[in-house]
Design a protein around this nucleic acid. Structure first.
Length: 273
DNA sequence: CGGCGCACCTGAGTGC
DNA sequence: TGCACTCAGGTGCGCC
């Protein structure tokens, strides 16, 4: 979504100056690399892998940005006042500034130098999971990834090494749509249930993207809100509310230290086999 | 190795 | 009004 908002603005722009703050995000901001590899370069394209944005520069360097939980990217007139928690500013050759604001600093900024970008990206990408919006995201593939495991299916969906880009909100929504109890151990899921998950996942994510649908005007001067702000959620944060399907009260529990919601009636666990 | 618990961080919300 | 406390979520580390 952020990528879609930035796409009309960044490619073919040159970065004329980079400024960054002292406070580390997940990692310290690599100022020296930003100066050496990013400053002065033209932005060629923007890609996404898992929840990481990849800004590909004309010198083959890649600026890798993760928004964490509270991170937002926005385009602002260069002269506009900085805000609290602005950590990175890329001044472009049209007097707009791309700013990364992240109050909780769970995000990250990384630079893959042009000379090593290819191998660093290969390493990076090979340690990430299946992309839900790409071909190959099938029930069969998911079942294969879960082979030999017995963790709760919700934890599995949120494990970024297996499946990319599914956070707590969407894991809850996907399992509701697939009518599967979030605590079900993955080794107990049958092929049909994996297909349900494989089908529901892109639907939920696309709905979120559509709901968030950042337009050009949304993006200028402010930064977009995450899709779920406008997405109709069925179970997430809805403890006690009636299930949209059967009106049973939604229940809340915890899995892997994360709040978990489900409909006890629609998402009954399969009997142990 | 698999799986779990937890830390990281700030702001919003709640209760007294 | 103000303070203390809890909780939220993405990711990776450390421990069993």
């Amino acid at each position: 979504m952020t990528r879609r908002g930035l796409l009309p603005h960044l490619p073919d722009r040159r970065v004329v100056r980079v400024r960054w703050g002292d406070k580390p995000l997940r990692f310290p901001i690599p100022g020296e690399l930003l100066e050496r590899e990013i400053s002065g370069q033209r932005i060629e394209t923007i890609d996404r892998r898992a929840k990481y944005l990849l800004l590909r520069m004309s010198n083959k360097a890649v600026l890798v940005i993760h928004l964490g939980m509270t991170g937002r990217l926005g385009l602002f007139p260069a002269a506009s006042p900085r805000e609290r928690h602005d950590h990175l500013r890329l001044l472009l050759d049209n007097d707009l500034e791309l700013r990364l604001n992240d109050s909780r600093r769970f995000g990250s900024v990384e630079v893959w130098p042009g000379k090593h970008a290819r191998e660093m990206e290969d390493d990076f990408s090979s340690s990430r999971g299946l992309e839900p919006l790409e071909r190959g995201f099938t029930g069969e593939a998911l079942a294969h990834l879960a082979t030999g495991r017995r963790q709760p299916v919700k934890n599995f969906l949120m494990d970024s090494r297996r499946v990319a880009g599914i956070g707590n909100i969407y894991a809850n929504e996907i399992l509701f749509a697939a009518r599967i109890h979030p605590a079900t151990p993955v080794n107990l899921l049958d092929p049909e249930q994996w297909e349900q998950i494989a089908g529901a996942t892109p639907e939920i994510l696309r709905a979120a993207i559509r709901a968030g649908g950042s337009t050009i005007s949304d993006f200028l001067g402010s930064s977009g809100k995450p899709g779920y702000f406008q997405l109709q959620l069925s179970v997430y944060d809805r403890a006690g509310d009636p299930c949209p399907h059967c009106r049973s009260p939604i229940e809340k529990t915890a899995l892997g230290g994360r709040a978990t919601w489900f409909c006890p009636s629609c998402q009954g666990m399969k009997p142990q086999g």
